[in-house]
Design a protein around this nucleic acid. Structure first.
Length: 210
DNA sequence: AACGGCTTCAACCGCTGCAGT
DNA sequence: GACTGCAGCGGTTGAAGCCGT
């Protein structure tokens, strides 16, 4: 094999980096003569400067006849998604179901695919979090309004009741001590709430948020 | 036109499993 | 059974190309 010079750091006499057309030609020649496998002996082939591993990878991922190049079709994508859900990161197994595709190609595709998915879900998550925050803020605002209105309402109604029936506002000691036990107070509170909702209900449409 | 960020893809690295001795 | 060498696999890296500003 033509010495792979001029790129990377030579390791054990092998050089790293992209393959040249001459190297490809020599590797194809070797495989056509000796067949696939025995990759360690490829590296000992006259002129070889690549490790057996590297030769195997180059053959399997790039030079092997019948390889499909180019975009993964939607059908293939569907198969990949299904098989990945079934098998996990068994790229070589998945590749067997996709003639002409290599494990490396599928792995790379999945990586970019899942990255995209992750990004879009992150965006979606951010949006959801934003909506949730807005909702919380809205609820908090609503609560503050309610409290403010409650006080106002209680004062107003209490003032009215005091004029209507002063004895209701200054009950006996017993009544002062046990207001929540009193049926009158309970029904009065109910009526306050009812009044309140009649007044303010529908004022803020919760579904009308941004 | 230039620049920076992003995507794609070929190649490398380290690990595991298996077969031969 | 232990050791060794090899093939194969999955994870990771980095160069090149693309795209938006």
């Amino acid at each position: 094999m033509v010495a792979r010079m001029g790129w990377g750091i030579p390791e054990q006499g092998w050089r790293k980096g992209p393959w040249t057309p001459e190297e490809d030609k020599l590797l194809m020649e070797y495989v056509s003569l000796h067949g696939e496998g025995r990759w360690s002996s490829v590296s000992r082939y006259p002129g070889s400067s690549s490790s057996g591993k590297s030769c195997r990878l180059r053959w399997v991922n790039y030079l092997r006849p019948g390889l499909k190049r180019g975009q993964i079709s939607p059908q293939e994508e569907g198969i990949i998604i299904e098989l990945h859900a079934l098998l996990g990161n068994k790229w070589s197994t998945i590749a067997r179901y996709l003639p002409g595709r290599t494990d490396n190609e599928i792995k790379n595709y999945w990586r970019t695919h899942s990255k995209k998915k992750e990004k879009s879900s992150q965006k979606q998550g951010k949006r959801e979090a934003q909506i949730l925050k807005q909702e919380e803020e809205h609820q908090q605002h609503l609560q503050q309004q309610l409290e403010a209105v409650d006080m106002k309402m209680v004062n107003t109604i209490a003032h009215e009741k005091m004029h209507e029936a002063p004895e209701m506002m200054y009950p006996t000691v017993k009544d002062q001590c046990l207001p929540v036990m009193s049926q009158d107070v309970v029904s009065w509170a109910d009526s306050v709430v009812e009044d309140y909702y009649r007044l303010w209900g529908g004022f803020w449409n919760v579904d009308d948020r941004p």
